[in-house]
Amino acid sequence: MSLAFAFDDGLTTRWSAAVDAHKRHAHAEWPREAGGLILEDGSYAPLRNIAGEPLTEFETDPAEVEAVSGHRYLAVLHSHCSVEDPATGKVTPPPDCPSGADMEAQIATAVPWGISLCLSTGCADPFWFGDQVPRPPLLGRQFRHGVNDCYSLGRDWHREVAGILIPDFVRDPDWWQPREGQPQLDLYRDGFERAGFRRVERGPEGPLPGDCFLCRVRSPVLNHGGIYIGGGLILHHLAHQLSGRDPAAVWRSKLDFLVRHTDLPDDWRPPA
């Protein structure tokens, strides 16, 4: 039986008029990315895309943002566009998750961001991301990199279950894959201490509730993690799957090492 469910964060409904206006704007601008602001009165204010690569990037002019909104706005919307070849009929779907640049800009503005996926035939309702957006339950989440992935599940578990806030990290899809001419990224290994975690060693009795495992899944570097929640179970979220619980023993052979947040004492146990 599937644990999948339809989670509605409510933002598209709340700002339905602005979302509809944005979708018309984005469709008119396709195949260039387009976007704008949801203003305090709930209306949509389109903005020019001044990015050097407007087919794949979205960038605004700060002076225009100031003129339109006085830097007071409720949310940001922009589109990701398909690439379509009329000669062959080939359609490359738009990226269905935020880029690292999208995540960085969202964190800087500290308001919800929505991304609508646009084809030549029209634009879909946006998906929303950012810490200001209501979060789905921990179990049964649909995967979307940078929005609902293994790291975001770990952040949400620590906040909801342990009362600990850990920072987000900007990350592109498939950031762990080697890229020619660029240094190899190793975000988990380089970032766990900055996020407040320490490496721990456990004996034959195994991990303690709240210990987090880090491992590699078809990757040269650590690119997956989860939480031991007790009872022989881990909570994690693999790509293209729903978030869920698995037997810890299944993942023991894949484990690189365990970490634990420094604010979580070893004698901590989840609330009943």
Rank of each mutant, 00 (worst) to 15 (best):
M1E: 05
G10F: 09
T12D: 13
T13Y: 03
A17E: 15
A21V: 04
A21S: 14
A28C: 04
E29I: 00
W30T: 01
P31L: 11
P31H: 10
R32C: 03
G35A: 06
L39I: 08
P46N: 03
R48G: 09
N49H: 07
I50R: 13
E53D: 10
E53H: 08
P54I: 13
L55Q: 06
T60S: 13
D61S: 03
A63T: 02
V65H: 11
G70D: 07
V76R: 01
E84G: 02
D85S: 07
T92Q: 14
P93W: 11
P94K: 11
P95M: 10
P95I: 13
D96E: 13
P98E: 11
A101N: 12
A101R: 14
M103V: 12
M103C: 10
C118W: 00
T121C: 04
C123K: 01
A124I: 00
A124Q: 02
D125H: 01
D125M: 04
P126V: 09
P126M: 07
W128Y: 03
W128C: 01
F129L: 08
V133H: 08
R135F: 03
F143G: 04
H145I: 11
N148A: 15
N148E: 14
R159Q: 14
R159H: 14
E160Y: 02
L165W: 04
P167N: 03
V170D: 02
R171Q: 15
R171L: 06
R171A: 15
D174P: 01
W176N: 01
Q177Y: 01
R179V: 15
Q182M: 15
Q184N: 11
L185Y: 01
D186W: 08
Y188I: 13
R189S: 13
A195F: 10
R199N: 03
P204I: 11
P204M: 13
E205M: 12
E205R: 06
P209E: 03
L214D: 03
R216L: 04
V217F: 06
R218N: 15
P220L: 05
L222H: 06
N223E: 09
G226P: 05
G226D: 07
I227N: 00
Y228W: 07
G231C: 07
G232W: 05
L233D: 08
H236Y: 06
L238F: 14
L238G: 12
L238D: 06
A239C: 12
A239Q: 15
Q241E: 15
R245L: 14
R245G: 01
D246V: 04
W251I: 05
F257I: 10
F257V: 09
H261W: 07
D267N: 15
D267I: 05
